[in-house]
Design a protein around this nucleic acid. Sequence first.
DNA 1: CCGGTTCAGTACTGGACCGTACAGTACTCG
DNA 2: CGAGTACTGTACGGTCCAGTACTGAACCGG
Lengths: 229, 229
Amino acid sequence: MAAESWSEHRRAAIDAAATELCEQATDSRSERKRTGILTAATELFLRNGYQGTSMDEIASVASVSKQTVYKNFADKQTLFTAIVLGTLDRFGEPFLAAVDRLKDTENLETDLVELARGYLAAIMRPQVLRLRRLIIAEADRLPELARTYYERAPERTIAALADCFAQLATRGLLSVDDPLAAAGQFAFLVLGQPLDRALFCLSDKGFREADHNAHTDAGVRVFLAAYRP
Amino acid sequence: MAAESWSEHRRAAIDAAATELCEQATDSRSERKRTGILTAATELFLRNGYQGTSMDEIASVASVSKQTVYKNFADKQTLFTAIVLGTLDRFGEPFLAAVDRLKDTENLETDLVELARGYLAAIMRPQVLRLRRLIIAEADRLPELARTYYERAPERTIAALADCFAQLATRGLLSVDDPLAAAGQFAFLVLGQPLDRALFCLSDKGFREADHNAHTDAGVRVFLAAYRP
DNA sequence: CCGGTTCAGTACTGGACCGTACAGTACTCG
DNA sequence: CGAGTACTGTACGGTCCAGTACTGAACCGG
C-alpha cells in the first residue's frame, strides 16, 4: 500500500514536470486542463497552504469543473504531492549544474563566493521558501513526502557539493578529509541564518541583497579558513 | 487592534509562564483548571498540530467543560499563543546561562565543544522541534507570533553568543571583528544540518548521539580554524 | 449553612469543505 | 457527421469543528 502510493507519487511528479516543461505545446484539451489545474493549484497551495486551499477554489481558479479536477487527481493529497515533486524538480536542477561547473574552477575563492551567492539566492526565492514551509507544515500528515523532499533537495545538493569538494581536493585546491561534512558546513554557513529567519518571517523583506552578500562572503571566508590547504 | 491583540499575547504568555513555573501550588480551583487546560493543550498542540487539535479534545483531555476553556481563553488562537510563549520561556533560559558561563572559560576549546553539544541537544529535543514546526506551519496565519518566537529564541541565543564571543575576544582567546556574524556562523555550523533534517524527518530517529557529537566537534573545529587568534 | 459563582455535560448553530452524483453541453476522432 | 468521451454546473451527503446556550450540580466565602 505504501509502495503503491509511492509509485503514484512518482508518476504524478513526472507528469507534472513534463507538463511544466513544455508549458502549453501541442496538447489535447485534456492535457491543457490538466496543466491549468496544476498551475492554479501550485499558485494556491504555495500562497494559502494545504488546509488553506480548497478543491472548489482550485477548480474555480483553473476555470474548470471540480469533477475535472477529480478526474485528473484522485484526491487532494495526490494533487498536492504532484505539485510538490514537480516544482522540486523544476527548481533544483540549475544549481546542481552550477556546482558541477565549480569542479573546473580556475579561481576558487571568486567562484566559491559566486556559487554561494547563487545558492542563497536560489533558496531564498519566495516560492522555494513557501514550498519549504508547506512541506514542513504537512510533515506529520505526509511524512513520506517530506522525506522525499529532503532527500531530493537539501541532501542531494549537499551531496553534489561534497562531490565537488572531493574533486577540488584531488586538484590540491582544498584540504578536506570528510567532503560530506565540509559540504554541510559550507551549506549552512551560507544558508543557515537567512533561511532560518525566513522560515519564521517570510513576509519580512528586511533582508536586502547587500546584507546577503556580506553574509555570504563572511561564510565563505570561514569555510576557506578551515579548508584552504 | 494589532497592539491590543499583542498585549493580550503578552499577558497570556506571562500567565502561562507563571502557572507553568509554580506547577500546582496553592492555587484556587480556577487556577488549577487553567493550568490543566494549558498542560492538556500543550500536549495536544505539540503532538497533533494546531488544526489537528480541536477545542473539544482539549476540554476532554483536561477533564474540563468546553465552556471553562472559553472562559479562560477567548478563542483557539489566544490559547495557542499562550502555550507557545509559555513553553518558549521555559526552554530558553538554561542554555543562555550556559553561554554566559563560557565567558570565564579556562579552556576554550573544550568548553566550546561542550557548549555546542548542549546547544544541539537542547534544540533537538522532540518538544522543541515540534514547537518549531508548529510555529513555522502557522507563520502565515500568525505572523506576529512567529516573529516573536524568532526574536526570543534563535535571535536571542545568537545575540548571547555574540556577547560571549566579544568578551572572549577582549581576553585574547578569539579573534573576531564581527561577533554577531561569528555567532551566527557558530550556531549554524553546529545546528544547521541536524535541525534542517529534523524539520523534515521528525519521526526519524536516525541521528544517534555519536553522529551528533562528531558533527558538533567538526563544526567547532571549523569555527576555531577561522577565529582562533 | 446559604446565596452567588463556577463548572460539567450536552446539545445546538453556523459554516467550511471533501468527495460524489447527475443531467445537459462541448469537444474529438473515426 | 455521428458515436463516444470529456467537461460544466450545480446540488448534495457526510463530516468536522469553533463557538454559544442552557440546565443542574458542585464549590466557596461569609
